[in-house]
Design a protein around this nucleic acid. Sequence first.
DNA 1: GGATGATAGTTACTTTTGTAACTAACAAGG
DNA 2: CCTTGTTAGTTACAAAAGTAACTATCATCC
Lengths: 147, 147
Amino acid sequence: MDPQDPAKAFELSAFTPYLLNLAAETQGEAFSRIYRERYGMLRTEWRVLFHLGRYGALSARDISSRARIHKTKVSRAVEALSRKRFLTREVSEEDRRVEILSLTPAGYRAFTDLSGAAREFEAGLAARLGAEDLALLRRILDRLASA
Amino acid sequence: MDPQDPAKAFELSAFTPYLLNLAAETQGEAFSRIYRERYGMLRTEWRVLFHLGRYGALSARDISSRARIHKTKVSRAVEALSRKRFLTREVSEEDRRVEILSLTPAGYRAFTDLSGAAREFEAGLAARLGAEDLALLRRILDRLASA
DNA sequence: GGATGATAGTTACTTTTGTAACTAACAAGG
DNA sequence: CCTTGTTAGTTACAAAAGTAACTATCATCC
């Protein structure tokens, strides 16, 4: 089949979902190198670690709803972080189905380290794009993420 | 461990790679419903189909480099599209390692249909975000995708 | 024209993710 | 209390993606 008439041709490189995906992959890969190489973590593990470091003890369900991560992914990330001795689990007194997750000192150190790395990463983006464009980008992404 | 001092706390919701990923997932999921439900395609298949529809006959290698998709993913997508009778493969005369891929009429119809759907999708985004913000978004994403 | 190295594409193997079913615990109504 | 329905979390199974090794072909250069 011959290519489509260029006049009415649709450009994939101007299709926003495609661009979003490319940008997310490129940037996500760049940052993932850090937590992967330093702590052998996967993305979901980094996010779970982050939520516990940022907000204190939470249940898996809390993390799942706050971070918009499916509960099976959370379950596996918790298991992995627990094996790494980055968090401890304790059955809740009020509801024995619930496990309260807390970072260990080692987990908290990893959190602090990675938070710093994330801040630097973000500063690098600000330097590249300019603070205004970056702020605008985040504002738009935030709208796109919710719909 | 207690949560970090809020004053110096790092917000994941203001971390660009995270926002990029959320937005890409949300929007990608919304559009993928279309090619998944209409043609049972995966994302890589849609991209391969698109490249063949847009640019005419190409080799798997061409698609791989143009679309930035790893060759094993292209190989599997080509296999799937071939099973669906959306493309044909023909060994090149000049180089018998190369297969020239071309859309069948059915493949081309799917391409035309999905291109239209993509255009509509993009128009919906323009309506939601405003044409200027969308254009700016695409410009920024383009820069982020390349580094 | 045979050895060496590169390239196109596939296959095998492993890791990760998605989906569904499951267990255990709770809650509420009769 | 005992049924019915719901929720927290895990596990089992299937689909998808990543990595590495492989086959076949080509190109070069001695």
